[in-house]
Nucleic acid binder design. Structure first.
Lengths: 325, 325
DNA sequence: CTCCTCAAGGAAAACGGTTTCCTTGACGCT
DNA sequence: AGCGTCAAGGAAACCGTTTTCCTTGAGGAG
């Protein structure tokens, strides 16, 4: 097969009977051309199925309309909503996303970064979990970076993080409004940054693991400790689900006897619980969108600095407020 | 600030005192050069922090070392492991992934495809869920496409799909080996392709939804129908969890009285169940790796055709075989 | 009838690499 | 001494666009 070589702008120009420069102008609406010429060129392009070579274009324009997204820990449940938000915000500007998974390996991260730089991405979004901050990456001059979810250790960098403390406070306020006074917080490992931040607003905290079985265990501990609690605010939805299961099976009515709340608003867990869980939604998609918007701003020459906090909100379900049904 | 222009190969050549062509050869190990010259050039590159411009390079070599990944339905739980597998297989070949989320919208899909073509990607991986097959995408000549998870409607295209029927059969065999004879299958909506395929090996099926609450409902139905069942094979892990919860609460011992199995091996659900669920693992990461490998083959000039089936395997936990503990 | 202006479009220089082809010496052989 | 061979590296073409600058001819003003 002669492999029908992919059409270039030269082919288009030849077919339309103009010079390549003219064809380029016609396709991009630059310069001053007769309307008839423009349509002639456009038709020729259409006919040949011409699609401009992005590499050639970006060589000239020094813009790639590409951003890199590096997830430092493995890409997982939290990255997805953010990714969707990022895609959403960037897609509108016809910008594509190069996804890199560094898997918590600095070597891999360095490698990915180098690839991104060689591709001359217009910007980089760095995301990840675990610790409270992370060492900034060195993208060199002229390549803006926005950190999402996990802030850069350099406060001058631009970061967007969820308002975890605010979310926890919203839980506390909600429970207080419901008249709950004896509130216990059950959360993940004490060395985990999110656990500590979320716990900071609660007077009484049990640290453990991020799992349902720890939730069940914690409930047992609480029951053994005595019946003097009327609300359990949990560090994530899995713990909350474990707590509700164990309390329910011990005869406690939720929310009548004890109100329970989760964190993350992970629908699969929160909605399947009995009763469904009131939970904090960190709006990760919105956070991703915000990060992408800030990156676009920076690319356009208006870099933002500092750590921005993205609001979380409470989603109220039956585990704190029984529906009249 | 004078913005220290990013170094080009010309700068490197000048610093090393050679011609640009020579610099290129030194950096890529082409042509015949003295060892001393090569190190001199490499040092110059190092010193300037030179990173070759990928756009310029691909213009010449007609390779972009980029593949596009289009998820037709929104990128979700199933895409992630595949994405990781793909990244894994491609990363070894220093190939980057452009991620596109078409959100089940043909217009969006067409748009993304056009972007990918303009970027002259070396190949495309298409993934998605829902139906059994999907209309092939038109990537034009010379751009290989591999369909992952969801096969192309054109049997001549290259697709990789999980062996759902095989997984279901493995469940059936496992239960049979354990001596279970009265097996009921509880699964998702009948119009869902995966539900029907997985159900195909079972004699007795209840269709419903992919949720825990349907699982609980189904268990109630079974209990009402009579006690003549000794195993419930479920269409996914959520249903299985609902079933185990309801059966346990009704006093049935699992696995002693009734064995229960899930499907998908979604750790968060399967391991948190009481008891933990025996489940079918479709090895999505492996599937993604296979798809990527096939794509690499195709890019190298050895395209594979037809629909390939990727084996699933059973992960056995306490919901069918109680541990001696 | 000149001269100027201006719209329309062509020619060519970038952009930053890779690759082909050519030149130059040095060397070995007769 | 003359010739061919070969290693080393330079010069320039090329990849496919965009953009700048230049040319041309037509129309309007004086």
């Amino acid at each position: 097969m002669p492999r029908p070589r992919i059409a270039t702008i030269r082919d288009v120009a030849a077919l339309a009977g103009v010079a390549v420069g003219t064809a380029s102008k016609a396709l991009n609406g630059q310069g001053s051309l007769r309307a008839e010429t423009i349509t002639r060129v456009r038709q020729a392009a259409e006919q040949l199925g011409f699609v401009a070579n992005a590499a050639a274009r970006s060589l000239q324009t020094r813009r790639t309309y590409t951003v890199g997204m590096i997830t430092t820990d493995t890409i997982g449940r939290f990255s997805i909503p953010m990714l969707i938000g990022v895609e959403d915000a960037l897609g509108a500007g016809r910008i594509s996303v190069l996804l890199c998974d560094a898997r918590d390996d600095p070597i891999r991260e360095r490698h990915h970064l180098e690839v991104l730089l060689s591709r001359r991405v217009d910007g980089v979004i760095v995301t990840g979990r675990r610790a409270g901050t992370r060492p900034p990456i060195d993208a060199g001059p002229g390549v803006p970076v926005v950190y999402a979810f996990l802030a850069s250790a350099d406060p001058a960098d631009c970061s967007v993080v969820p308002d975890e403390a605010g979310g926890a406070q919203a839980v506390l306020d909600h429970l207080a409004t419901l008249g709950r006074r004896r509130i216990v917080h059950v959360t993940g490992p004490a060395h985990h940054h999110s656990a500590r931040v979320r716990a900071s607003v609660f007077p009484d905290t049990l640290y453990g693991a991020w799992s349902e079985s720890w939730g069940r265990q914690a409930a047992a501990i609480l029951l053994a400790r005595g019946p003097d609690f009327d609300a359990v605010a949990c560090g994530n939805d899995q713990i909350a689900r474990g707590v509700t299961d164990a309390l329910r099976e011990a005869g406690r009515r939720i929310p009548h006897d004890v109100a329970v709340t989760g964190f993350d608003n992970w629908d699969v867990i929160a909605e399947a619980s009995r009763p469904p869980l009131t939970s904090v939604d960190m709006d990760l998609a919105g956070l991703g969108r915000t990060a992408a918007d800030l990156l676009l701003q920076a690319i356009a020459g208006n870099p933002a600095t500092g750590t921005h906090t993205h609001p979380a909100h409470l989603v109220i379900r039956d585990s704190t407020v029984a529906t009249s049904a």
